[in-house]
Design a protein around this nucleic acid. Structure first.
Lengths: 138, 138
DNA sequence: AATGCAAATGCAAATCAATTGCATAAGGAG
DNA sequence: CTCCTTATGCAATTGATTTGCATTTGCATT
């Protein structure tokens, strides 16, 4: 299985909980809050504890398997897919997230490097209204 | 006073608490968490309540007088200065924040517009190590 | 200067996301 | 199969942020 390999590559033990978490994330096109993720996980693996999900989100994030984006309420998580790095335009009306391939770090890394700054992470998210919500609301 | 005018322009009442909050923010070059801000505010205006600070951060943010950036622990706030919009490179070692003039939205607004997406807000923050911390740690 | 009312504040309690300590269970190398 | 390390379940805690409500205050208007 692909998921098992992901875990092995990162020296993480293969547990049913992790399998469940990654399975859910893999089957979700947009991103999920920890709560939403948890709700899906317990459908697959009833009895899974909430803190296990949280702990694993941290672990998986630390290993670079996930990415996290801040949101008004809770942080949202998403599987980091091979296609690579991207950002999102999130609709505040319906919650839809549109992938954005453009990454500002490409333009900025050099300039920051010149100043001696070594970027390790970054966050770039756009919020607004998608075409549908825009029409509907104004 | 400049601060009073900022409030008037936004149809906000001029209260000692708001004056204190804005004074602190004005005298701070980087950004502050709500807690840090509160600590400073009560030096100026003892007795100010914590929830008052929070509520005003929301209000001032809503009026566009502040900007907020997400952070590991708590959100951070900063006065939005006339010089205009900018982002930050934040050092995870010492917490220093380096202003970044480059704004990715300039390049992206058109493209998103073509897709019908109307951006209203965005978040772009870079995290990493500044020159000093970089040397010290690795 | 006095009045009225909406907006702002203080206080305390409630939420809610996220974290942690600890005893138990389970992965997987040997 | 055994051992040791890591992961999990559970319950309690932390810490940021929010909210209800009674009271006070800014300030536009008499």
């Amino acid at each position: 299985m692909e998921i098992e390999e992901m875990l092995k590559q990162k020296d993480l033990k293969i547990t049913p909980q992790r399998m469940a978490i990654l399975t859910v994330l893999k089957n979700t096109r947009s991103f999920l809050s920890a709560q939403e993720l948890f709700q899906e996980v317990i459908k697959i693996l009833p009895g899974t504890n909430f803190s296990t999900v949280y702990r694993n989100l941290d672990v998986l994030l630390g290993k670079g398997l996930l990415c996290r984006v801040p949101s008004d309420t809770a942080d949202l998580y998403e599987l980091r897919r091979e296609e690579g790095h991207h950002h999102h335009a999130v609709c505040k009306g319906c919650g839809a997230s549109i992938p954005v391939d453009f990454c500002p770090m490409e333009s900025l890394a050099k300039e920051l490097g010149r100043k001696g700054f070594l970027p390790t992470e970054h966050c770039f998210e756009v919020y607004g209204l998608c075409e549908r919500c825009r029409d509907g609301k104004k």
